[in-house]
Design a binder for these strands. Structure first.
Length: 562
RNA sequence: UGCCCGAUGGUGUAAUUGGCAACACGUCUGACUCUGGAUCAGAAGUCUCCAGGUUCAAGCCCUGGUCGGGCAGCCA
């Protein structure tokens, strides 16, 4: 596992290295990952997590996990728990540095009082609608609120009464007194506290006023002595406000906010709002639906933390918005799984093969390597007998050229077993469907025996019919059929790929797969990587297709089809 | 005639901070193979958004454009 080290540097590291050279913050590097617990983490968060924890590790600093829980209406412990689980699963450790913005509510309140005392904040009685109107537009400056010049005493009194619960939701807010004519709308006397009489998942009902993001975030960073506060591009316009609050309050540590471009992936949607909608609307089976780009979805799909970290490393960090090709994610996954997943044989769409010249009732145990990429993975025995299953698509009555698989009169090797030749087809009289393939085998061609080293073009996977276990297999593809499903012209939900999920029952797998541990990754030979779903039981193993193998034959077919 | 940010092969990032544009994914060839997997070898593809300027030298600096993104929650 050497997927760190020599990746080329990015502009954030340049800034940090320069800060270290100048002994800024005494050369300390402290970062944080600050999720709001209002949804599940997704691969875009993974980029931020890898960045923040990675930076802390690289520069021997630390990275905090802080829940930005200032909006009780939308937040929930369910999300807190899942976020912690996901960060841990990704392989990061915040140690004792677990924080909640809600832990700072008292201090934040004191800071607000300080601002009021210095005449830099005021209680405003305008309602939300009026505030919007006074704010002006992108092109026109705003107007000052009629409540802007209240006395400090009156502001103090009103703010205390807001806290005491004397007013209804929305009746008053606390605003920073900055500049209603600023070109940056965030600076037009932003609201920093609002009344919200709802129960908070951690502080219960003791607060009925809650601080806004712009006030909370910078001060939380400062309180935790963060040095580099890394966030996504949409907060660029908030940076002047971030700096304003810290400057006016004259805090000891003033972290530097640095923005980077969030991750976008083609064939998927990433916004929390969209993901929530997919879950709540029943378009997927939950936050951990294997088609979701959530960490829990990827985990259930069979992704490994290593693959995700490697991906985050490779995509880099920059300020230009971009869309990463999902093929890169899949590449990282295959690369990791290739060296760790045990090979097994599973027939997804079985067709029966009868080897006429193989003795009835005979069973042989054949040795099979578990992973050709890993000598330490060892071998196992798999049973072979007269009746087998092979993959439906591995036989064609009228094969096109370059078809290396089984057809009438043609030979193929059965992996780890013998070379067989197809002699006769038994079809259903009515449907014409192939029921049985009668073959002969050549006893001299047993795998491992050196006498007969005849080469055949094709090698198939198979399972012994009497020994095979039944299994359920769930096939997944991209959730959306368009590269950019949410481009705006149409409802993104119209672009959901109807083939993104396919359920296969009656699959036949080798007996070693009967009692397997949830989450284990396997490679089904010639098919792809699959992992054991939590729905799996000792009676009926259930596998999710994580990702298919690279398939040159499929590519050839596709090309010729066009 | 608001403010802020960005632009380098198809995609994502680099470029010793001003020195003959590189890496990865993808694509295409070929070799090898008891996985049409993996691996190996190779190829095509960017004259760095445009126009000026500074300089012996510009993807990097300056000026002006063009195009793209973000901002008008009592969300974060």
């Amino acid at each position: 596992m050497s997927n760190e080290s020599t990746a080329s540097s990015n502009f954030i590291e340049d800034i940090i290295e320069s800060d270290i050279r100048n002994n800024k913050n005494n050369g300390e590097v402290v970062t944080r990952f600050p999720p709001e617990p209002n949804g599940y983490l997704h691969i875009g968060h993974a980029k931020s997590i890898c960045l923040n924890f990675g930076l802390a590790k690289k520069y021997k600093g630390r990275c905090h996990l802080r829940f930005d829980d200032t909006n009780p209406g939308k937040e929930d412990v369910e999300y807190v728990d899942s976020i912690m689980e996901d960060v841990k699963w990704l392989g990061f450790d915040w140690g004792r540095h677990l924080y909640y913005a809600s832990d700072y509510f008292d201090r934040l309140y004191d800071y607000a009082v300080q601002l009021i005392k210095e005449g830099k904040a005021y209680v405003c009685d305008l309602n939300a609608d009026e505030i919007r109107k006074y704010r002006g537009t992108l092109k026109e400056p705003g107007k000052e609120s009629p409540y802007r010049n209240r006395s400090v005493e009156e502001n103090l009194d009103l703010f205390a009464r807001m806290k005491a619960g004397e007013f209804a939701n929305g009746e008053r807010v606390l605003r920073a007194k900055i500049d209603m004519k600023s070109g940056n709308i965030n600076m037009r006397d932003p609201v920093i506290y609002r009344i919200q009489k709802s129960e908070h998942h951690r502080t219960g009902n003791i607060w009925c006023i809650y601080p806004m993001y712009d006030f909370t975030h910078c001060l939380s960073d400062s309180l935790e002595e963060i040095t580099h506060s890394i966030c996504t591009l949409e907060f660029e316009n908030n940076r002047p406000l971030y700096d304003w609050v810290l400057d006016e309050l004259k805090v000891k540590r003033h972290p530097q906010q640095i923005e980077f471009a969030r991750l976008n992936l083609n064939y998927t949607v990433m916004s929390k709002r969209r993901l929530l909608e997919l879950v709540k609307g029943g378009y997927v089976k939950g936050w951990d639906d294997p088609r979701m780009p959530t960490i829990s979805g990827l985990r259930r799909r069979g992704f490994t933390p290593e693959a995700i970290r490697d991906f985050c490393e490779r995509i880099g960090v920059a300020k230009a918005d971009s869309v990463v090709d999902i093929a890169l994610l899949e590449h990282c996954l295959r690369e990791d799984l290739n060296r760790r997943a045990a090979r097994v044989m599973a027939v997804l769409r079985p067709v029966k093969v009868i080897i006429d010249n193989y003795p009835e009732g005979k069973t042989e145990d054949l040795q099979a390597e578990n992973n050709p990429e890993d000598a330490l993975a060892g071998t196992r025995m798999i049973p072979f007998s007269r009746e087998l299953y092979i993959e439906e698509e591995d036989f064609m009555e009228n094969p096109p050229k370059k078809y290396f698989r089984l057809s009438l009169g043609q030979e193929v090797r059965l992996k780890h077993a013998y070379i067989i030749k197809c002699k006769r087809i038994v079809k259903d009289e009515k449907t014409g469907q192939v029921n049985e393939l009668h073959c002969s085998y050549d006893p001299k061609t047993k795998s491992g025996s050196s006498e007969e080293n005849r080469k055949v073009k094709g090698t198939l996977h198979w399972v012994s019919a009497q020994h095979a276990a039944d299994a359920e297999v769930r096939l997944y593809e991209h959730l959306f059929s368009k590269e950019n499903p949410d481009s705006g012209e149409e409802d993104y939900k119209k672009n959901i790929n109807p083939l993104s999920f396919e359920l296969l029952t009656g699959c036949k797998v080798e007996p070693s797969l009967l009692n397997v541990k949830h989450g284990t990754n396997y490679q089904f030979l010639r098919q792809g990587y699959f992992c054991v779903d939590p729905d799996s039981s000792g009676k009926m193993p259930v596998f999710n297709r994580t990702v298919s193998l690279r398939d040159t034959w499929a590519k050839i077919k596709k090309k010729e089809g066009k």
